[in-house]
Every structure is written in C-alpha cells, then in structure tokens.
Design a protein around this nucleic acid. Structure first.
Lengths: 187, 187
DNA sequence: TGGAAAAGTTGAGTCGTTGCACTTTTTTAG
DNA sequence: CTAAAAAAGTGCAACGACTCAACTTTTCCA
C-alpha cells in the first residue's frame, strides 16, 4: 500500500474518530460538519470527499453485519426454520443491556436522532436482496421468489418495528411469530 | 369561518397548487422553494409558515387515507380475515394502470425522487398506531397487543416492499400470503 | 375606535452540500 | 532520469433549505 493510500486512510479515520467523539459529546444536531472538519484539521470539502453525507460519518463499518446475517440463515442448526434462525439472530444483535458502554451510547445516539434513525434503517434495509437470495438458496426456491423477498424485507424491518416500543424483546418475538405461523394461526 | 382563516387557507392552497404544478413540470429537485414562493406571490419565509418542509408541499391531504385504511378493517365483509381485507385495500389503492393521468404523474414523481419516496413512506407509516388499534378492536385483542401492532406495521410496509419490484401485484400478494398463513405453511 | 394578536415581509444568518480552481502526488513517456 | 500529463487531495466561494429576530400590515373583538 503506497504512502498516498495510507494518508487517505489516516485522514478518513481521523474524521470518523473526531465525528464519533463530537457527536457523543454534544449530540448530532449540535455538531456541524465544519466542527468535525476543524477537529480533524481539514476543510469541510474534504469531509465530503471521504463520506457521502454527515450521517455517513457515523456508519462507517457495515460490511460484517451483512455477512453475519447471511451466516445466521446458512449455518443455522439442523431442523431450525429460517424465520426462527432470523429471530435468534435479531435477538442476539439487540442491545439487551449487555455490551460495552461505548456501544450503548452509540445506540442511544442513533435512536434518539431522527436523521440517524432514518439513515441507519436505510443502510440496514440494503441487505434485503442479499438476505432474500440466502433464504432462497436455503430453501431451494427460485432466486427471485417474492415470498423469500417478503420474508427478508419483514425480518429486516423487525428492528425498526421494535424500536421505540416499551418491550422491544416482546415486539421482536411477536413479529417473528407472525412471520412464522401467520395471522390465521395466532389471531 | 372568518375572513382571516379564509385568506390563510387561500394562500396555503395557492402554495400547494403552484408547487404541484412546478414539480410535475420540472421535477422536484429542479424547483427551489423560492420558485414556489414567487409563483404564489409570497416570500420564501411565508412558505415555511404554512408547510414544515419542501416535501410537505406535495403531501397536503393525508387524513382521508387513514380513514379509508381503518374502514377497510372495520367494515370488512362478514367472515373475511383482517389480513385479507388489508390485502384487498392495498391492491385497490395501487395504481395498476387505472386512475386519472394526473394521479399517475404524481405517483411517478414521488417514486422517482428519493427525498419524496422517503417522506411519503414516513407519512404512510404514521398510521401504524391507528391501524394497530383498529385491528385490536376488530379481533377483541388488548389495545396494545404486539401481534396486532406487528401486523399493522408489516401491512403498511408492504407498499414499500412492492415499490421498485418488477411485478408489484405479485409482490403484494406474496407479502400478504406470508402474513396470513406464515412461512411454515408456504415455505 | 383602539389596540391585541395573527399573517406576512424582510434581511441576515446557519448548515449541508457541491462546482470550480489550485496544489500535490503519482504515473507515464521521451 | 526527467518532464509532462493524469489523478487525487484540498480549499474557497456559492447554492438551496431552513431559522430567527425585528417590523409592517391586516383582522378580530371589546
């Protein structure tokens, strides 16, 4: 890796670090892109050469989440249904009081700021196509089967549904119960 | 209603009309709020006294859609399940080639502009709580039943799911089949 | 008729974001 | 090895959405 790419990665990291620190400190809306740029000692234009938007400064590493999602479907235990595997994965990912306090503050920040909620949801829903393909592969359905796509969409949407609800765990379980057995079985 | 409120409503209507005309003409991003204000012969700040954002200029009448949604659940034919009633309503609302050409152009505009897609979805999902309450009432469940809320969320989300898909009708039907009978029955 | 309150205007300003121009680095050609 | 061209990084100025504070006009009502 040449010196150029090393420097580029360094400023990118400096921007992401400064942004995270400032956002956690003062709140997303109370920090301007100019503030982040000054904290990293670059101009505001440079920020947008590295990140497509202000929100993107926070959501920098997103590739491993998709891999874990696909793996939850593909490597599920013998005999476990796809919706159940997705339910387990969703509950496992959910910050049920565990995890380091830094991560807890991050989650609290993203959930309390509308712009970040929206952006985070859009990033998350981008995995719909990949998840649908994984489900289709796991069940032998055609690759563009609408039923698999629907399950993928709703399974991902579950975290948005649970957000802001009093009992998030209960909401997730109710949503996946609906997806697994249908309304006619429960209602 | 006094002259004061009448005038207020008049300028509001003039703004919405001018905005619709200009947006359909040139496209959302090619029209500035200033343009809309000048077309309605007011200042730009006055626009934001009437509408909270540029996008809101397009989505002005939204109360009857919620009423129709609730009615579709409450007044469904004897013996028809709630998910099926919602499916019928969704298909009925969908612009499957019918409808006046003005409405078709409106839909085409909102679906081709990212900012409008997002805004429209948020407006639509605001009806979740009301729909969940209607479902709970129709089935005798407790008012804050998570299962009813999940069905409401997913039923509303169906239009976002179908958007951008090759066969929207097929997507809607697959989604509601999943909600009605569950994955275990179909997959 | 005399104001209190609301609507509208104005102008300056903030913030996210983007062209355009400039500098620096890397690559390529002679 | 060096000069020039291609590429990448950087910054200034600007645009558009949106806000705030002060002020003028209009409408309401006592």
């Amino acid at each position: 890796m040449g010196r150029r790419e090393r420097k580029k990665a360094a400023t990118r990291q400096a921007l992401a670090d400064a942004a995270l620190r400032l956002f956690l400190d003062r709140g997303f809306d109370q920090v301007s892109v100019r503030d982040v740029a000054e904290a990293a000692d670059v101009s505001t234009t440079t920020v947008f050469k590295h990140f497509p938007s202000k929100e993107a400064l926070l959501f920098d590493q997103d590739s491993d989440r998709e891999a874990a999602l696909i793996a939850a479907v593909r490597d599920r235990p013998e005999g476990m249904s796809v919706p159940r595997a997705l339910r387990e994965h969703t509950l496992r990912m959910h910050p049920g009081g565990a995890g380091d306090p830094e991560m807890a503050r991050f989650v609290e920040l993203t959930e309390s700021t509308p712009a970040l909620r929206e952006y985070g949801r859009r990033m998350w829903m981008r995995h719909e196509a990949a998840l649908a393909a994984a489900i289709a592969e796991a069940t032998g359905a055609p690759e563009d089967d609408p039923g698999c796509a629907a399950l993928a969409h709703f399974a991902l949407e579950t975290v948005s549904f649970a957000r802001g609800r009093a009992d998030a765990r209960q909401a997730i379980e109710a949503a996946f119960a609906l997806l697994e057995h249908g309304w006619s079985a429960a209602g």
